[in-house]
Amino acid sequence: MRLSVLDLDFDTLPEQLDQPEGYDGAVVLLRLDGLPCGQAVVWYDQYDPDIPLARQLAQAANSSFWERWVAREMGVPAAEPIPHRQPSVAIAICTRERPDDLKRCLDGLLAMSIQPPIVVVDNAPRTDATRDVVAQYPSVRYVVEPRPGLDYARNTAFDQAEGEIIAFIDDDAVPDADWISCLLRNFDDPLVMAATGLTMALELESEAQVAFQKLGGFGRGFKRVTYDAVVIDPFDSWKAGAGVNFAVRRSAADIVGRFDLALGAGTTAQAGDETDFFRRLLAAGYKIVYDPQAMNWHRHRRSMEELERQIYGYECGSFAILTKALLFERNPRALARIVRWWRYQIPALLRSARKTGGGHLPFRIPVVQTRGACAGPGGYLRARQKARQA
Results as ranks from 00 to 15, higher is better:
Leu35Tyr: 12
Leu32Arg: 04
Ser303Met: 07
Ala111Thr: 03
Ile166Arg: 01
Leu326Met: 11
Pro20Glu: 10
Ala247Asp: 08
Trp342Asn: 13
Gln310Glu: 12
Arg249Asp: 06
Pro146Glu: 09
Ala334Asn: 02
Pro125Leu: 11
Gly359Pro: 04
Leu322Asn: 03
Leu191Asn: 12
Pro117Ala: 03
Gln56Asn: 05
Val225Gln: 05
Ser206Gly: 06
Glu80Trp: 13
Val244Phe: 10
Gly379Ile: 02
Glu145Thr: 12
Arg31Ile: 12
Pro117Gly: 02
Ala58Glu: 11
Leu381Glu: 10
Ala173Pro: 02
Cys374Leu: 15
Glu306His: 15
Gln59Val: 05
Arg371His: 04
Val244Gln: 13
Gln115Asn: 08
Leu263Thr: 02
Ala253Arg: 14
Gln56Pro: 09
Trp342Met: 13
Leu17Asn: 07
Asp18Tyr: 10
Asp188Met: 05
Met304Arg: 00
Asp122Arg: 08
Gln19Pro: 08
Gly313Tyr: 03
Thr156Phe: 06
Gln213Tyr: 13
Ala265Phe: 08
Leu29Thr: 15
Leu281Trp: 13
Gln19Val: 15
His84Gln: 06
Thr127Arg: 09
Glu162Arg: 11
Pro81Asn: 04
Ile91Arg: 02
Phe168Ala: 03
Val231Met: 10
Arg302Val: 10
Gln345Pro: 03
Ala375Asp: 10
Val174Asn: 00
Ile346Met: 10
Asp228Val: 04
Asn331Ile: 06
Thr226Arg: 06
Ala208Leu: 03
Tyr286Ser: 01
Gly272Tyr: 01
Trp43Tyr: 13
Phe328Thr: 07
Ala177Val: 14
Tyr23Gln: 09
Gly217Arg: 09
Ser251Met: 02
Val289His: 07
Pro377Val: 01
Met304Phe: 15
Arg364Ile: 03
Glu308Met: 14
Val174Trp: 11
Gln385Asp: 12
Met295Cys: 12
Ala92Leu: 06
Val256Ser: 06
Leu263Trp: 01
Ala387Leu: 08
Val28Cys: 10
Leu110Trp: 03
Leu29Phe: 12
Ala240Leu: 07
Glu203Ile: 08
Arg2Tyr: 12
Ala242Trp: 11
Cys182Phe: 13
Pro14Glu: 14
Gln345Ala: 09
Arg258Val: 11
Val368Arg: 00
Phe277Trp: 10
His298Ala: 10
Glu73Pro: 00
Val174Lys: 01
Leu183Met: 14
Asp48Pro: 05
Glu97Gly: 06
Val140Thr: 00
Ala54Glu: 14
Met112Leu: 05
Ala253Tyr: 09
